[in-house]
Amino acid sequence: MFSGMTELRHKYLRHHKKFPHVWCPGCGNGIVLGALIRAIERLNLEKDDIVFASGIGCSGRMPTYVDFNTLHTTHGRALTFATGIKLANPSLNVIAVMGDGDATAIGGNHFIHAARRNLDLTAIIINNQIYGMTGGQASPTTPYGAQSTTSPFSNIEHAFSIAELAVAAGASFVARGTVYHAAQLDKLLEKGINKIGFSVVEIMSNCHVQFGRRNQMGDPVTMLNWLKEHAVSKDNGSSMPPDSLDAKFTIGILADTDKPDYIEEYKKIRLKAQRG
């Protein structure tokens, strides 16, 4: 088993390049990256055919470490670059990784329109409920009542429910997982990447350094336990968003529908145009 993971590391990581990585010890980003690599391995995709794009923030550094066609774009805009790449070369598998602030604050408009447009992209949104890299400021998914460096008295805003937002905006495939439920996460990512159309995998993750520390969960184990205790499988009830520190949230597949993706539709447009 261990040798298997070592093999994967050698196959997919740019181990001679930019390591050690920038993430804090215990960060959930590593679990996400591991799950992504395992999903890609199981799907048997060629490294040359994968584009891995990111925005800005801790998640933004993820593409640096993996041996794909990688792109570290501007804040919130990963999906816009991904859109251009996919349209220019539809044979590529284009995956974008974003953080919660990246995807739903500065990039919120791009996110909902990408879901509406249904171009065959995979959006991985790591939701650690905070702006980590810039020092623990409140994000659109920071729970009501939580502490952050820009809500030092208490956060009075309400959190976005990313997965539910994606469902409403029309994404073909929407799932939510956590970095605690790692085995499930592998499968959700595999399904998301494999889906034709716009797919979203929201991953609840831990930032014990910037979020946990200010909210009585200052170490990774406490935070992972929080994820374990608050996540409820989709099979056990209806969809619930993570909107407060006490409330539970749903994990699993929230939407999986089939409709023609943008590339298929555009092929028809070309035929119409060329018929003259």
């Binding site: 584009v51 816009t80 859109t83 251009g84 790449i85 349209l87 220019a88 590529l92 791009h110 145009a273």
Partner: peptide, 27 residues
């Protein structure tokens, strides 16, 4: 579409140039 190219109307000008740069990166 007549010349096998691609046109897309984006949600704003930020995303328009993002998509343009992406397409250029794809050659």
């Amino acid at each position: 579409p007549q010349v096998d190219g691609t046109f897309i109307q984006m949600e704003d000008e930020i995303s328009s140039l993002g998509a343009v740069i992406g397409a250029s990166l794809a050659g």
